[in-house]
């Protein structure tokens, strides 16, 4: 490590002026949280682990050909025939190059993360669209979540959630949830004034407004958020291989460590195929 940098960030002064010890505070905060909340985070971790592992085992236990056909069928129904054919060929190729199991591991993690993002993100988006104060508090947190480099919170996740799929999914959540919240907010605030007046003037309750007018009109925007979330999740679960998440990211990680370029490229292509399939299916969901 660069020695000069090391000394400058561990010293108490910068050019004779007292240095604000943000790093030390962070360490202390994490220590504190660890000492006091570790048991509850580990309980959460265990529950999540069961769910995610269950999902992974479930996907792996189904015969590949059946999964491929189901995905192709979904693509055909929701998108179009071209995408169905692409899904069919793409997944057959992944199966052929022997990356089926790791791909399913990755898919399961993405699905788990996206599901949690939707369950948390859509209600949060509704909250900040309806409540100015909540918006003022949450908006800067979202900026923080989106721009803070992933590696910075990848490591602190380990003491709370251990190694493996759970911290991977949790960090993916942090990284991939902001677009859902933001686009839910955007979709709801873009509902034309006249349609809101329509709802009110016909005597709709708050929830009738939300369910019958606002959410349906915001649907395509929210779907764009979910699409973004899926893409970000996919890129994050690959990075999360660093903390033992396995899957396609694990293969990439091994390839880097062993300088095995062919292996890395194969895993990379599998990730791209998975990304294209997920993207096309979800983006066509938003349009229809």
């Amino acid at each position: 490590m660069n020695l000069e940098l090391f000394f400058s960030i561990t010293s108490y002064f910068t050019d004779g002026i007292p240095r604000i010890p943000l790093g030390r505070w962070t360490d202390q905060t994490i220590d504190f949280l660890q000492a006091n909340f570790r048991e509850s985070t580990q309980a959460i971790s265990e529950i999540l682990e069961i769910i995610i592992k269950g999902l992974q085992e479930g996907l792996i236990s189904v015969p590949p050909l059946l999964v491929i056909l189901i995905v192709a069928l979904i693509a055909w129904k929701l998108a179009n025939r071209k995408i169905a054919v692409f899904s069919l060929l793409g997944l057959l190729f992944i199966w052929n190059i022997g990356l089926w199991v790791v791909t399913m591991q990755t898919l399961a993690m993405v699905l788990a993360a996206v599901l949690m993002c939707i369950l948390l993100g859509v209600p949060l988006g509704i909250l900040i669209a309806k409540n100015e104060t909540a918006y003022r508090i949450i908006a800067p947190i979202l900026d923080f979540m989106q721009t803070l480099p992933a590696f910075v919170y990848l490591l602190p996740a380990i003491p709370f959630f251990g190694l493996g799929v759970v911290p991977a999914v949790i960090t993916t959540l942090i990284f991939a949830m902001p677009p859902i919240i933001r686009l839910t907010y955007l979709g709801l605030t873009q509902v034309p004034e006249e349609l809101l007046e329509l709802g009110k003037s016909f005597g709709s309750t708050f929830f009738q407004m939300l369910i019958k007018i606002e959410l349906p009109l915001a649907r395509s925007t929210i779907m764009a958020g979910i699409n973004q979330c899926i893409m970000l999740s996919l890129s994050m679960v690959v990075i999360a291989a660093m903390i033992g998440a396995k899957g396609l990211g694990g293969v990439v990680w091994t390839a880097i460590q062993t300088l095995n370029m062919g292996m890395g490229f194969e895993a990379g292509v599998a990730i791209v195929i998975l990304a294209i399939i997920l993207d096309r299916i979800t983006s066509s969901l938003g349009k229809s």
Partner: peptide
């Protein structure tokens, strides 16, 4: 009472 709007205010979906 029911309202009728200038820009119709129909729900497109």
């Amino acid at each position: 009472m029911s309202m009728i709007f200038q820009k119709f205010a129909l729900l497109p979906n």
